[in-house]
Design a binder for these strands. Structure first.
Length: 264
DNA sequence: GCTAAATGTTGAT
DNA sequence: TCAACCTTTAGCT
């Protein structure tokens, strides 16, 4: 289930299992047959993640670009791999491991130039090495668009999805409806910093837990129903003030917020 | 067993 | 603004 932290984990997982080894690549379902044939037998040299985009780098500058969309998944396991069942878009196998891709929005071969074009469309990704928040601030501070909509725009900040949008806005006690340009620099800086913290915690633990200080998040220690402040908690009492959590569609997705803590 | 919704994006209207 | 993409799961029956 893919926000940016999931994609970065996947890049690491592919790297750990396959990096430096020749892999077989196939498309049992057939929709990626041509690309798979071109990659088959090549060495996976490196992996990269940018926002919600995953890149697997093979010999001779061949990049596999994968975007999971809403319900794409990678499943990993040890060889021998099971007989392919259902719509298995792509299977990578080698070095004792296999990885199966299903349901992705994008699974395609790209050139280095195409890869950089994809990256150029994206805003700073808090999970990359030294993300520069300035382009995000520039967009935000000039925009009359609601902050809840801007956060979902991958050209503003890459890797944020519907959960992080709702949770980060709550943690900042910011109304999702405030125009970007009404957000002050200190508020933005605090939000950017907090976003990095919760996303790094998600990267470490593999799940989004925003109700603890990020450095204390641990897999399994927080019940799933306690993991979020507002996301998917419509009608339930706000954990801070007891006001029922509100919901409405914004940017095509269900937005959740506390009308009292996040007034204005 | 069926239906709706889901951590997303694109392209047509 | 909406349908399409294509898969899994939760919540019904």
């Amino acid at each position: 289930m893919p926000e940016g932290h999931t994609i970065h984990r996947l890049a690491r997982e592919h790297g750990a299992r396959f990096s430096g080894t020749a892999v077989s690549v196939s498309s049992p379902q057939g929709r990626f047959a041509e690309g798979a044939a071109l990659l088959d037998g090549r060495i996976l040299e490196r992996t990269d993640a940018y926002g919600k985009h995953l890149f697997l780098g093979f010999t001779e500058q061949r990049w596999l670009h994968v975007h999971l969309g809403l319900y794409g998944t990678w499943t990993f396991g040890s060889l021998p791999a099971p007989v392919p069942r259902g719509a298995l878009r792509c299977r990578v196998a080698g070095n004792g491991s296999y990885a199966d891709l299903r349901g992705a929005t994008a699974c395609e071969l790209v050139t280095p130039v195409e890869k950089s074009l994809i990256e150029a469309r994206l805003g700073p990704d808090p999970l990359r090495r030294r993300p520069d928040p300035e382009p995000a601030w520039a967009r935000l501070s000039r925009s009359r668009t609601a902050i809840g909509q801007l956060l979902m725009d991958q050209g503003v900040v890459a890797g944020v999805g519907n959960v992080y949008r709702a949770e980060v806005l709550f943690r900042a006690r910011l109304s999702p409806f405030r125009a970007g340009q009404t957000v002050g620099r200190p508020e933005f800086d605090a939000m950017w910093s907090d976003l990095g913290s919760v996303m790094r915690a998600g990267l470490r633990s593999g799940r989004i837990v925003t109700t603890l200080p990020p450095h204390r998040s641990r897999t399994g220690r927080v019940r799933q129903e306690d993991a979020h402040y507002v996301y998917r908690r419509a009608g339930q009492p706000c954990r801070a003030c007891g006001t029922p959590v509100a919901t409405q569609v914004m940017a095509g997705r269900n937005l959740f917020w506390c009308p009292s803590c996040q007034a204005g």
